[in-house]
Simulated assay, not measured.
Amino acid sequence: MEELVSISGRTIVMFVAVLLFFRLTGKKDVGEVSVLDIIITIMVAELAVILIEDTKMPLIRGLTPIALLILLSRVFSYLQVKNQRFRDVVDGKPVLLIRDGVFIEENLFKQNYNIDDIMMQLRDKDIADIQEVDWALLESSGSLSVFKKNDHSPLSLPLIMDGILQHKHLDILDIPEEEVHQALREEGIHDIRHVFYCSRFQGNFFIQKKNSATTD
């Protein structure tokens, strides 16, 4: 009976600890979870199980590594927000799989994607044939974003994020780098590091300076 009470108490404590972990990480759904988050979540779950089953282990010994993992998760989240290079390593970048109704074989191979995989996802989006597709992007979350040829909205990707020019996005959208710099100069911006975000939609550039100063 005493052991049952101990296990019940530990279960409640670990439930609160794991709940606190998810609340502090700020994730709302699985699609927002990075690889690092998955690793940390698995480790927290394993520690929770060990601490519940081993009633001889002091709670503090199990809660200490969990607290450390929560701290690591917060640090990684901060770095992902503040440092794009770190974010790219952890989360990756969107990859173009289809352009103008044609597979990009090299990218399919790099992402370990086969034709059956992508056709199944296209059918899930009520697309019967690849010729209906204008663009298909494999997002860093693993989901597939598809733009049909008859869609009125063209594909738009960030051209500048956190003061860093997104060369891969320029290649995907076929936008010359000089065109972006020209748009910045027209807005009186001579240092790309002063730009928080820049995109182009329907031929028009949107530029947001850092410190919430905006212009378009």
Rank of each mutant, 00 (worst) to 15 (best):
I12S: 08
Q202T: 04
E106V: 10
D171W: 12
K110D: 13
I70Q: 03
K168A: 11
R74F: 12
Y197G: 09
T64F: 14
I70N: 06
V13E: 11
W135Y: 15
S73D: 15
G9L: 10
S212P: 01
I104C: 03
M119Q: 09
L165D: 03
K210H: 06
K149L: 04
G188F: 05
T25L: 03
T64C: 14
L79H: 04
H169C: 06
D29F: 02
A45I: 11
K28S: 09
H194G: 03
N114L: 11
P94H: 04
G31R: 04
P176V: 06
L19T: 13
T11K: 01
S73P: 08
P158A: 11
K82N: 13
I104E: 07
Q121I: 03
E139I: 07
V49Q: 05
G92H: 11
E53H: 06
K28W: 10
E177G: 09
M43F: 14
E2W: 05
D116N: 13
E32L: 07
N107T: 11
I192E: 03
A45L: 12
V49N: 09
L79S: 03
H190M: 12
L47T: 04
D162I: 04
P176I: 07
L138N: 08
A213W: 04
I52Q: 02
E46N: 15
D88W: 14
F103N: 02
I164M: 13
I130C: 10
V75H: 05
Y197R: 07
V89K: 13
E3M: 09
V75S: 09
F103V: 03
S153G: 00
L20Y: 04
I50F: 10
L137Q: 00
I172V: 14
V180Y: 07
F103C: 02
A48K: 09
M119C: 00
R99N: 05
I127P: 00
V30Y: 08
V30C: 05
M43S: 15
P158K: 08
D37L: 10
R185L: 13
L137I: 09
L71R: 03
